[in-house]
């Protein structure tokens, strides 16, 4: 029986799940950090930084993540840069791509804070850093939390693209099972189910955060 075969391959699937989670968690951390930094730099309107940041944003938002992954992985090999394994290449591409999208979420959140907040803080003598840290960001976080989690859901599914450069995440391990025992339909149903079990709780969390932000 097919299901039986898949069940017996659960060890392989588990490895895939761990690798998917590893890549997801790592790129959520790096993508969020990059996105926050880019948003802060863009909203600070620092002279000379506006154009380069805009270019970064448009290039990585405006091209497919798959292409970026292939470009980084094979580009690094072509240039002889060592240490760029499949995980590093996937993580780098995800960081840059998700960072671009996340920076826009943060920018919207930062700009949603009324201008008077910044002026009052400045009048009290707070430094630029202190204003962001103690006045603006605490008000930004409740605004961006729900859209951020929404973005993370997309990110988890985007990690599946790393299969194209040979990273052994869920889809790739599923492929390995199919290569061995066939049963593609059943295997992919199981894999889709695993993704759903990761993403659905996140979706519920996003909804709860949204209602909380509305009542805040």
């Amino acid at each position: 029986m097919g299901w039986q075969g898949i069940f017996e391959s659960s060890g392989i699937l588990f490895t895939g799940l761990v690798n998917t989670l590893l890549l997801s968690v790592a790129s959520i951390a790096t993508g969020t950090t990059l996105g926050l930094i880019v948003a802060l730099l863009r909203t600070a309107r620092i002279r000379g930084l506006g154009l380069p940041l805009r270019l970064y944003l448009e290039i990585f938002r405006g091209s497919p993540l798959l292409v970026q992954m292939l470009f980084i992985y094979f580009g690094a090999a072509y240039l002889g840069i060592r240490g760029v394994d499949t995980f590093m290449a996937a993580l780098t591409a995800l960081t840059l791509y998700e960072g671009a999208l996340i920076s826009e979420i943060f920018r919207a959140g930062i700009e949603a804070v009324p201008r008077g907040q910044r002026e009052a803080a400045r009048s009290l003598g707070l430094s630029r850093y202190q204003i962001e840290r103690y006045v603006i960001l605490p008000q930004t976080v409740p605004i961006v939390l729900a859209p951020l989690v929404g973005q993370y859901i997309g990110l988890v599914k985007d990690t599946a693209l790393a299969t194209a450069i040979g990273y052994f995440e869920l889809v790739r391990e599923g492929q390995a099972i199919i290569d061995r025992i066939g049963m593609p339909i059943e295997t992919f149903i199981v894999i889709a189910g695993i993704y759903f079990m990761i993403c659905y709780p996140m979706s519920l969390a996003a909804r709860r955060l949204e209602t909380r932000a509305l009542h805040a």
């Binding site: 907040q117 002026e119 009052a120 803080a121 009048s123 006045v135």
Partner: peptide, 11 residues
């Protein structure tokens, strides 16, 4: 200088 605004601007 201390400043007080029309819209209060409390945090």
């Amino acid at each position: 200088a201390g400043m007080v605004f029309q819209q209060f601007n409390l945090f």
